[in-house]
């Protein structure tokens, strides 16, 4: 298997890129969550800034539209006192490769320290970290249907803050697993953090081939899928799925897989309900549930800023350590060359 730990960590095991939780060990994921916990407090203070990224330049590169993720990353970087540049870049389908390379090389020449990347192609952040700008910290803000690690980790933070340990938990992820970059990272993170009962719920058209090999069970029936669950994660259903024949109608989807008060009663009485947002009321979730006491949907948004602050500060510090180590090596090499 490709070594994702090597790519994401420095030689000393510090985070330098955050592309996916896959390949990172439990200790590292817990460190991310612990650091995020400390930033949750910062968000509650009168003055919300900390100087961790002062003098550093963070570039938000959004090749795909996103309002929420972009704004939480921007806010997170500003609360860390970084200089932030946000670029919305629309790519033409024909020249994706070229424009991506050119854009990145230009931004690199401006001595940026961190790129936060959202791109429509799976593996885009990986490509940038590996081949284009290895000396700039890369945070994956969503690539194709592959990964959305900060969303998955903020979900882990939500679960840990409200449910404690992961080992005894049953977690159901409901909906469009096929197109979901969040679901894949949630499975990796849940498994690494010790959760052993991960259930994926949806019709066969939205269930990717071979997903069970990732360590989750698949369920076509909503009732049995969420039966006795501690955590129910609802995924967003894009309306274009109906036009492309994955589903007959929003109405039928809601009837079969929508989370209603009645259905939620199948889960544990203290089960929490999560959703990466934005929610489609009446398509994947009933308003009474979304706004109800078990819903964590708005808590997730707040934790999202803290989690992103954690990952950005950790990756920046890992990247700086690596740069210093490299500078040390090259200066000692120069020293040897001189008589």
């Amino acid at each position: 298997m490709h070594n994702l730990a090597e790519l994401q960590l420095t030689k000393n095991g510090e985070l330098r890129h955050f592309l996916t939780p896959e390949g990172l060990d439990r200790l590292m994921l817990e460190r991310i969550l612990d650091t995020a916990d400390s930033f949750v407090v910062v968000g509650n203070q009168e003055v919300k800034k900390v100087p961790l990224l002062r003098g550093r330049t963070v570039v938000n590169l959004f090749f795909e539209n996103s309002t929420r993720t972009r704004s939480t990353f921007e806010l997170a970087a500003k609360r860390l006192s970084a200089d932030v540049l946000t670029l919305d870049i629309k790519t033409s389908a024909t020249s994706k490769g070229e424009s991506l390379l050119d854009t990145l090389q230009n931004l690199r020449a401006m001595h940026s320290d961190m790129f936060v990347v959202r791109h429509g192609d799976s593996g885009a952040a990986h490509f940038i970290a590996e081949q284009v700008t290895p000396d700039v910290a890369i945070i994956n803000a969503g690539d194709g249907r592959h990964a959305h690690p900060t969303q998955a980790m903020l979900d882990m933070l939500t679960i840990r803050r409200h449910k404690g340990k992961f080992e005894p938990l049953s977690v159901a992820i409901v909906g469009d697993i096929l197109h979901s970059r969040v679901a894949r990272d949630q499975i990796h993170a849940l498994k690494t953090l010790g959760c052993t009962d991960i259930r994926l719920v949806g019709p066969n058209t939205l269930m990717p081939q071979g997903i069970d090999s990732m360590g989750a069970t698949t369920h076509n029936n909503m009732e049995s899928g969420i039966d006795g669950a501690d955590v129910v994660i609802m995924l967003r259903l894009q309306t274009e799925r109906m036009a492309s024949a994955f589903l007959p109608s929003a109405g039928e989807y809601f009837r079969l897989y929508g989370l209603t008060t009645e259905r939620l009663a199948q889960a544990k009485p203290d089960a929490i309900v999560m959703h990466p947002g934005p929610i489609n009321r009446g398509i994947e979730i009933e308003s009474a549930v979304a706004d109800g006491p078990q819903s964590m949907i708005l808590n997730q948004v707040g934790y999202g800023i803290a989690l992103r602050m954690a990952v950005m500060s950790m990756a920046m510090s890992g990247q700086m350590q690596q740069r210093q180590a490299q500078a040390l090596v090259s200066s000692s090499l120069k020293g040897e060359a001189q008589p």
Partner: peptide, 15 residues
């Protein structure tokens, strides 16, 4: 190829 590797990497599979 549509299979476990494509699913994990989020790439569109060819069954």
């Amino acid at each position: 190829h549509a299979g476990a590797t494509a699913t994990r990497m989020g790439l569109d599979g060819i069954p």
